[in-house]
Nucleic acid binder design. Structure first.
Lengths: 189, 189
DNA sequence: CGTCTATTTGAATGTACTCAAAAGCGGTGG
DNA sequence: CCACCGCTTTTGAGTACATTCAAATAGACG
């Protein structure tokens, strides 16, 4: 279970045996049942989550009551409301599970301590954040220049197989269209 | 000129006199004329830019030839194609000046060296990236849940006075609508 | 099974776009 | 200093993409 996590760290920084053992000892395992809520908007996001198996969604519920998914997190993705976590302030987003999901979590104080103990991790999370930053830029650009049909095709490329695992209404929410319209797109595809 | 820059660093990390002097010595000043191009898509983004005065835009030109602005950078903002810069690979975005603009630039190798010399800066840029990350999340959420009219109102709040400085077609490009439609929205406002 | 939610289908509507033409504005050169 | 050229903005008509509403069907879960 922790091997996936360590492999993820190894993508950007080299860790020795002691460091790996230390990191292993700090992450906590949690099983999140399908549809269970890991973070509710308004609460403080107290941990970052690494998805070992399953899938999380991070989303915002607007005043009309409709959800908009900002991030889908299948295996090996990190999920956190970064603004809430880094300032330990109330969250704008909620996080819930789309399938039964195994997550490894790391609390705020623990991570701040880790930055002191293993400064390389500062680098790791800077790079991780940069990559996410870059992905969001591409998504904005895609939302500005592509039609719903094109964005749907991109979703299928970027998340292969995920379409079979989660409901259409969640895909529609990620794409920024209505489930009704997605159904129509699929019919004509 | 460099005081704005140092004040920006001071927002997230504390620097001593020596460190400040060292940082001052490494940034280079450049004046970018209105409409001049600082980075062309396809080239490698070799530096990060801090805007001292004026305004930059970062944008993508799609296959149809239309531009989509991903970021507007007035005074005290940082601009860089992060993906191109961090991997020193060809850029997806271009950067150009919307007004005559004073920028302070820091080259790739210089920054990597700085991370070694002053590890606190790793922290600074992690936080800077986290903040940008969070802003992009909000922009995606806004694009998904708000109409063009609402997004225009948000733009006016988020960039007060900027509307008077740059052309409507660039505002439209940032909002993801056509200049024609923006003109119509303003008329009805 | 029965209930609840998700998906499909169709019709009417709305938001934003394209195309085209006119008007406004800014810079440049004579 | 004015006239001209090119680019931006405005205006209007017609169109396309995506939504809402409503009802029927299909699936999931206890």
């Amino acid at each position: 279970m922790l091997d996936h996590l360590l492999a993820n760290f190894a993508l950007h920084v080299a860790l020795n045996t002691d460091e790996r053992a230390h990191i292993r000892s700090l992450f906590q395992h949690r099983l999140i049942k399908k549809n269970a809520i890991l973070l509710s908007a308004g609460d403080v996001c107290r941990a970052i989550y690494f998805v070992h198996q399953g899938c999380l969604r991070m989303y915002h519920t607007d005043p009309d009551g409709s959800d908009h998914i900002i991030q889908l997190c299948p295996e090996d993705w990190w999920s956190v409301d970064i603004s809430s976590f880094s300032g330990q302030t109330p969250a704008f987003y909620s996080i819930s599970a789309l399938e039964d999901t195994d997550v490894l979590s790391l609390g705020y104080a623990t991570l701040e301590g880790l930055y002191e103990q293993i400064p390389k991790l500062e680098r790791f999370f800077r790079i991780l954040t940069q990559n996410g930053f870059s992905l969001y830029q591409q998504r904005i650009t895609s939302n500005l220049s592509n039609t719903a049909r094109e964005r749907y095709a991109l979703f299928q490329e970027q998340y292969p197989k995920l379409e079979q695992r989660i409901s259409q209404k969640h895909i529609a929410s990620y794409l920024g269209i209505t489930p009704v319209f997605l159904s129509m797109l699929r019919k004509q595809a």
